[in-house]
């Protein structure tokens, strides 16, 4: 019913078929789902992509079976502090990183499997008043945390067995860092967004803060998802959670901004806005970016997918019969995961 109302207002007609249903899994534990992700998992010489689901008190690993079925293979119980999110770690295997806390992240743990001991385990990586944490390539984790006096920005090198091998402190800006993104193709370059609407650029090897620039948008507190450098310009994909429509800031979901790191000047390049919904305006709640596509959960309970380089909404997944979508994440190979609070996760090919 929702799809019927939604598709006629999409700019180029109905495009729900751009999302092809692949399979579904459902956690029947009855606990409220807080996040979903995927992880490469190697067992018995076979490496495969598995789904990870998180509730407040547990994190579960799901293995693909024949005929698009899924089986829960293990559950880590984390009863003391609630799980807030799963932190994806690119190019790692057999490791799941989770953030735990009450309103903010209080600690980060690695969940893994020890083949020597033939047992699942978890280990503490970091504690503190953590504002943002993002997994980087080559088993690195960057985080920002605050004490009363100062902010600490730190990169931890994780070991294969789930410990921390080494760390590097980055020079912290005064403003709180809310998100990080590696600059693709530049191993030592990292960007971050701040709560005061800035883009920060670091040298990961030296820890130097190279540049702090205005994010080039009046929407408050953007989050960075991807960054790449081309022809001397730094392109950053930003999202605007809970952005309200106003004269100064349109109803944006994602936004590609070009920065000249030499001058600090910026210009918005492509804007991706939520399609109008059947009940009026829809606003971006949360989302994820993979390659040149962005996916987001909107206030209507639908998931929308955009071509970020054209600013075009390419598909809309209406709320399911059992409820609204609450989470959306990309997995390798243009597979979209959409999760509901009741533990249902749908996998779609885009």
């Amino acid at each position: 019913d929702a799809a019927e109302h939604l598709t006629p207002v999409l700019p180029d007609g109905p495009r729900e078929e751009n999302l092809q249903f692949v399979s579904e899994l459902k956690d029947s534990s009855g606990s409220c789902a807080v996040d979903v992700s995927t992880v490469w998992w190697e067992a018995d010489g076979c490496r495969e992509l598995r789904v990870v689901t998180a509730s407040e008190s547990s994190v579960s690993l799901w293995q693909p079976l024949a005929h698009n079925h899924w089986a829960k293979t293990y559950t880590w119980q984390l009863a003391e502090i609630p799980v807030i999110q799963i932190i994806p770690l690119p190019d790692t295997c057999n490791l799941v990183c989770v953030a735990l806390g009450e309103l903010e992240i209080g600690e980060i743990r690695l969940l893994g499997y020890s083949s020597e001991a033939d047992s699942f385990k978890h280990s503490l990586v970091k504690t503190g008043n953590i504002k943002a944490a993002v997994g980087l390539k080559e088993q690195r984790l960057v985080s920002s945390s605050r004490t009363l006096q100062e902010q600490q920005v730190e990169v931890v090198l994780l070991s294969e067995t789930g410990g921390s091998k080494d760390w590097q402190t980055l020079m912290a800006p005064e403003e709180t860092v809310t998100a990080f993104a590696e600059v693709e193709g530049m191993r030592e370059a990292l960007v971050g967004t701040t709560a005061a609407n800035s883009i920060v650029v670091w040298n990961l090897q030296t820890g130097q803060l190279l540049r702090q620039m205005h994010a080039g948008c009046s929407c408050p507190a953007p989050l960075c998802h991807r960054a790449f450098s081309d022809s001397g310009l730094l392109f950053v994909v930003l999202s605007h959670p809970h952005a309200k429509e106003s004269e100064s800031c349109g109803n944006l979901a994602f936004h590609v901004v070009a920065f000249n790191p030499r001058t600090g000047r910026s210009r918005g390049v492509v804007f991706s806005s939520p399609p109008p919904g059947w009940g009026g305006r829809q606003v971006y709640l949360e989302g994820d970016v993979w390659d040149t596509v962005g996916a987001a959960v909107l206030t209507s309970g639908a998931v929308a997918v955009w071509d970020l380089l054209r600013g075009r909404c390419g598909a809309v997944l209406p709320p399911g019969p059992s409820g609204h979508w609450a989470l959306t994440r990309w997995a390798a190979g243009a597979v979209l995961l959409a999760g509901q609070r009741d533990g249902t996760v749908g996998l779609y090919r885009y």
């Binding site: 020079m171 530049m186 030592e188 370059a189 650029v201 040298n203 030296t206 130097q208 803060l209 190279l210 540049r211 450098s229 022809s231 001397g232 310009l233 730094l234 070009a258 920065f259 000249n260 790191p261 030499r262 001058t263 000047r265 910026s266 210009r267 390049v269």
Partner: peptide
């Protein structure tokens, strides 16, 4: 984006900013 919008562009911006930034 044209160069006039964003100012002079350098392909080596990362190395240049690293050399100029406080250690």
């Amino acid at each position: 984006c044209s160069e006039s919008d964003l100012g002079p562009i350098s392909l080596n911006w990362f190395e240049e900013l690293t050399a100029e930034a406080p250690p």
